[in-house]
């Protein structure tokens, strides 16, 4: 039972970007992928979500390959991505954006509505329900993007730099929301971040991605404590 990326190679037209990346996310697990700008983090999550094609290697969920299925089908099977830059539908309201998320959960209903709990915990979402998404602040947009993803009833959730462009305070709030999503939905979460510290503190396990290769992996606390990571990603002078 897990989401597996197996010796994945992919990229754009002629440029190969990932050179055999392997990683695993278990159910309910929070896994961080850290790496500097241009390391290939976005390429990785977009490929898992089905927006880029797999050149070689495999993607599996619970043992069966989904490397050849469409992005829409992956979303319907519960592999849900929150893209870099959030990508809300700018002219839809908050409510309509979240309604779009529910489309991916069609046929996988039952149990309590995962969105309801988030709306209770973050009343700002309800306050903004009828507002057009592009009028929200960056922090609010990220909350909506995460809620929209939860509406899709994710089994595995891919988060591409959720803290991008947010103040430290807003970042904390977003991480609080991510933590809550993990508890409420039991989804396995793959969290991609350039701001490594916060991600490594929140995660169970972590991978370091460098120039399209995994250069280190292990329990998040160990990765966070290692000299290379402290120097390269946490700004600690060596």
């Amino acid at each position: 039972m897990s989401l597996e990326v197996d010796r994945l190679e992919c990229g754009y037209d002629r440029a190969p970007i990932l050179h055999g990346v392997s990683l695993r996310v278990g159910p309910g697990e929070l896994v961080a992928v850290v790496g500097s700008n241009g390391a290939g983090k976005t390429t990785l999550v977009r490929t898992i979500a089905g927006l880029l094609t797999v050149r070689s290697g495999d993607l599996r969920v619970d043992g069966s390959s989904f490397a050849r299925t469409s992005a829409a089908r992956r979303a319907r099977s519960g592999i849900v991505m929150v893209p870099e830059g959030r990508r809300l539908f700018p002219q839809l309201t908050v409510g309509e954006n979240i309604e779009m998320g529910r489309r991916a959960a069609r046929g996988r209903t039952g149990g309590e509505d995962p969105v309801a709990a988030l709306l209770d915990a973050f009343p700002i979402l309800t306050e903004r329900w009828d507002q057009q998404a592009n009028l929200l602040s960056g922090g609010e947009q990220q909350m909506v993007a995460l809620t929209r993803a939860v509406a899709a009833r994710p089994r595995y959730l891919l988060l591409d730099e959720p803290s991008l462009g947010l103040s430290p305070l807003k970042t904390l709030e977003v991480f609080r929301l991510i933590e809550m999503i993990r508890e409420r939905t039991g989804a396995g979460i793959l969290l991609v971040e350039q701001m490594a510290d916060q991600a490594l503190q929140a995660a169970d396990r972590a991978y370091v991605l460098e120039l399209g290769r995994v250069s280190m992996e292990g329990p998040a606390a160990e990765v966070r404590a290692s000299d290379e990571v402290r120097r390269a990603y946490l700004g600690v002078a060596g």
Binding site: A49, L51, A71, A72, R73, R76, E96, M100
Partner: peptide, 24 residues
């Protein structure tokens, strides 16, 4: 209608619409 919502979503961002399980 919900078909109308999907139509507006696709017109704004087809790629993100596919992430919502709807094939553009």
């Amino acid at each position: 209608t919900s078909a109308g919502l999907v139509m507006r979503a696709v017109s704004q961002d087809p790629e993100t619409t596919s992430l919502m399980g709807v094939s553009p």
